[in-house]
Amino acid sequence: MKLAFPRLLAAGLLVLAATACGTSDADAGSGTLRIGVIGSGVGNKLNGAVGFLSERGGLLPELKAAGVTKIQVATFPNGPDLNQALAGGSLDLATYGDTPALVARGKGLPTRLIGLSQINLDAAVVARKGGPTSLRELAGKRIGVQVGSYIHRYLLAALQQAGVKPAQIIHMYTPAIVAALDKGSIDAGALVSADRYAEEQKGFKAIDVASRDHPDVLGTSATVVTQKYLDAHPAIVRAWQGAQVKAVRTAKADWPAYTAFAARVGGYRPEVTLKTTLPAQLPDEPFPARGRTLLEGTKTFLVQQKLVAEDFPLDSWIAPGAKA
């Protein structure tokens, strides 16, 4: 069974295609690296292991060899929103979900893949109170999800595997999904593991969990650089990969401090972050085998859904000089 992505996403992709040749106003020699990330907590701040390294003053020294003297961060609620900024030329580098990154590449956005910053990212379908108790009971129901995200890819794959066709898949950001579940105005919402855990603390129930029920569709987080920035700063690839590896080692060496940072930046209660932030999600190398397998699976699914018009080898997307 093929499940079509909502028209809203298609419209957003048309805008992406129309702006893909936009130019950057930034001075290539300014030394400022403009980074886009996904977040809902503290605004315009690097998150993940690299953010932890940056907070400790360790990121800029790692990027000095690539000519980076300053970092400018922009936070976005969702991958398609970040894609618009990439396409418009206001970002040089971005770390975000594999699904929007692959869709952008499939639509012709000139990015190159530097590495995978996170792997095995979990998600779940949470039902309203007194609502569906299984995926099968979502037939003919309304489901909220951040369209275009890795959570959306998981939801579609889970519904497809269960042979379920909902009445409507509604594009909603996470706060709106949580509010709609509280009101009972949607039957279920697809959420990241931290939000799932927070909802379970309020008495809601996850009726499907990616890591438990569909481990082949766990998400990854990709770091990409624009071709324009790469052409002007080819050293950024190895510099960023080195910074990412150092950041992961730093985080794993002081896990309590890292999870405290993740809770603060992500806007979650510490116990939620401790429950849902796992060392196994931070790879010790740019392209771990597990991450490549998940990324390849996501790409195949997106090709089947016709969101990536033509299949392509992942190696053709990886930036020149990257340690693959």
Rank of each mutant, 00 (worst) to 15 (best):
K64I: 00
V68T: 05
L60Y: 07
V50P: 02
G48R: 06
V42Q: 14
G48C: 05
A74C: 00
P77K: 10
N78Y: 13
K64V: 05
G58T: 09
V68C: 03
P77Y: 11
G51N: 09
G48F: 07
K70D: 09
L60M: 10
G51Y: 06
T69I: 04
E62Q: 15
F76H: 11
L60W: 07
L60N: 07
T75Q: 15
G48N: 07
L63C: 03
K70G: 02
G51R: 11
L53K: 04
L53R: 01
G67Q: 08
N44M: 02
I71G: 05
N78Q: 12
S54W: 12
V68R: 09
L60P: 00
G39E: 09
E62G: 01
S40A: 14
Q72R: 13
E62L: 04
G57A: 10
P61C: 04
S54D: 15
N47G: 13
G48M: 02
I71F: 11
N78D: 12
A49F: 03
V73P: 01
N47K: 14
V42P: 09
P77V: 06
L53V: 07
Q72K: 11
G51P: 08
F52Q: 06
P61V: 05
G58S: 11
Q72C: 04
V73H: 04
G67V: 02
V73E: 01
N47A: 14
G58C: 06
A65V: 08
L63R: 01
K64Y: 04
K45Q: 13
P61W: 08
E55T: 10
T75A: 13
G43P: 14
A65Q: 09
